[in-house]
């Protein structure tokens, strides 16, 4: 048995310490970046936030007043997107997890979902413009924007739903089928109810995504400014992300309106991260209280 040189050992541990320091550094940079951005936005935005800011429309060419129409518009668009994306996504996931058997068609569908997930948001915007605004003649509207966003979040929802469906134990399905209950009844009565919490938390992430996107709604739904609230799904709306972009790049007086910009950013961040936080917390809670 030969002796490992003490100096070699020392060098090996030094190497390790250096590497670990590097890794911790990377983790720290990412954390600081996120923390820094959020903190900065809070510090600069908090002073603009008031009850009036949230509940009043903009005035004086958007240099004063609130952002209520933009908040409302974002809520409309998000609700619209989820009511399109959720049923389609869940149904799609049900086929993939419950019915599909390995094969070319399934492989193709999976590649399709991955590719759809990778389509740039601005391309979704072009698609929404060409398809819903022009071909379907919806115009720039809540409907066109919701459809565009709904398809944008489809891969997220399919992924989350598949994971949730797969986590329902196989023994539940077997028990139900062995009783002579048909497959679709088993899916609707046993599998789906047990997967629902997982599907919903996964979908909340999709909601967050839909609420924060700008490019897909620029040409399909978002209005630079409207004084009136939308009366139907065929009306344009203001939306928080687009409002930020407009204020920061094309406002009447960009430097003067900084506080309003920060305030709007803070509202959007709070909305989106709040939605994400809810999902993260529910998921952690569910994992801890898993019954099977």
């Amino acid at each position: 048995m030969h002796q490992i040189q003490a100096s070699t050992m020392k060098w090996r541990y030094l190497q390790q310490s250096l590497f670990f320091a590097l890794i911790r550094g990377a983790a720290l940079i990412i954390t600081l970046a996120l923390g820094g951005i959020i903190l900065y936005i809070i510090i600069h935005g908090i002073s603009a936030i008031s009850w009036d800011f949230i509940t009043k429309p903009p005035t004086h060419s958007m240099t004063q007043g609130g952002i209520m129409p933009a908040i409302l518009g974002t809520i409309y668009l998000t609700v619209g997107a989820i009511s399109i994306g959720l049923p389609l996504g869940v149904a799609s996931a049900i086929y993939l997890t419950e019915y599909a058997r390995q094969g070319r068609v399934i492989r193709l569908i999976r590649v399709g979902i991955n590719c759809l997930a990778g389509v740039p948001s601005v391309v979704f915007g072009l698609f929404g413009l060409a398809f819903f605004v022009i071909i379907f003649k919806f115009g720039s509207s809540i409907l066109a924007g919701s459809l565009t966003l709904g398809f944008l979040i489809l891969p997220t929802i399919i992924g989350a739903s598949e994971e949730a469906l797969k986590s329902v134990p196989k023994t539940f399905r077997e028990a139900s089928l062995a009783l002579g209950v048909s497959k679709w009844q088993t899916i609707f009565r046993i599998v789906l109810p047990n997967a629902l919490p997982g599907i919903l938390t996964g979908s909340i992430l999709g909601i967050g995504r839909a609420a924060g996107e700008t490019a897909p709604i620029m040409f399909t739904a978002a209005a630079f400014f409207t004084s009136k609230l939308p009366g139907s799904v065929f009306d344009e709306v203001m939306a928080l992300p687009y409002h930020i972009y407009v204020l920061a790049t094309a406002g009447t007086n960009i430097e003067e309106t900084r506080p309003i910009q920060y305030g709007t950013v803070l509202v959007l961040v709070a909305l989106v991260l709040g939605i994400n936080m809810i999902a993260i917390i529910i998921r952690a809670y569910m994992r801890r209280n898993k019954r099977w």
Binding site: I30, A33, E213, I244, V265, L268, V272, L273
Partner: peptide
């Protein structure tokens, strides 16, 4: 942290850069 970073809207990051 990484999940929240993923959730940060791009317009917010753009605004921050600007």
């Amino acid at each position: 942290v990484i999940e929240l970073l993923a959730g940060l809207p791009s317009v917010v990051l753009g605004f921050f850069g600007m």
